[in-house]
Amino acid sequence: MSLTKSELVEIFRKLVLIREFDLLAIELRKAKRIYGAVHPYVGEEAVAVGVCAALRPTDRITSTHRGHGHCIAKGADINRMMAELFGRVDGYCKGKGGSMHIADFAIGMLGANGIVAGGMPIACGAALAAQLEDAGKVTACFFGDGATGEGEFHETLNIASLWKLPLLFVCENNRYGAGNAVESVRAQADITLHAPAYGMPGIAVDGNDVLAVRDTAAEAAERARRGDGPTLIHCKTFRSLFHAMRDVPPPETRPDDLLAAWRGRDRDPITRLEDHLIGGGTVTTAELQQIRDAVKRDLDAAVAFAEASPYPDPNDLLVDMFAE
């Protein structure tokens, strides 16, 4: 499916924004300007951006512990995201959530989640609501390869297929669950094979090709909107950096040749789209540089916004516990 130039440029901008946001988060964390854990999405940007490019603003998503990319792809405000990382009151969760619990229900982003597969039942619930409302909304449920080891993965695939829920199960197979290679924890390495077992289509896609991800997600979303049920989209990608850091990034333990192969210009999701767009004459190098410059300015502004925001008042500790 062909996209307009402005759509392609926006896809490129979001890839770059996610990449730079997380690289900046790592530096901010090393400098102890933000708190907690950082789980960088570097290398996997095409999955979130490709899937969300196929969604409508009223569609919903659930995310994971590695959730910054999903937030940005769905349209979250980076100022409020950054303020949350800084633990400030203007953050999405007023400083109560932090990196692993960013949500923006107003844009259908139902939350990052610190528990592997924890968001999957919630995504099914959102899809059930959409089915009952019959308003053509779909839910995209992002999860990693590690989630396939959890009961919630199997339970939700079964129920979603049984009830024909309007869902996209988006598996980000980045080849490692924390420090463990996929083949070391799965008896059957091919995650796509879970789909036929639960009576739904399973499609493997190059998760570093944002346009391929977008087309696959668009087809799955159309199927879901028709009432034909969920699709398992197996996005083959790679976590370019570490699983998580607190004060300092952990040492790299994965093979050098694997890292080199996935970080190459022909495989990295950003340079790959860049070469495609320039090679096809869609945009110029100068135009892409303008986008990169604008992203840097936006991120500088986000940090300034976050630092200008006050810390939450300890007197508000009990606020937001229960709804009226």
Partner: peptide, 28 residues
């Protein structure tokens, strides 16, 4: 049977489905 859902014996799934549907406008 749309409002009165009979579910598989999958407690984690339907506990979370109730929560997700609640966050999406229903009262499960």
């Amino acid at each position: 049977d749309k409002r009165v859902r009979f579910t598989p014996i999958s407690e984690a799934a339907f506990t979370g489905i109730g929560l997700g549907a609640a966050g999406s406008g229903f009262r499960p």
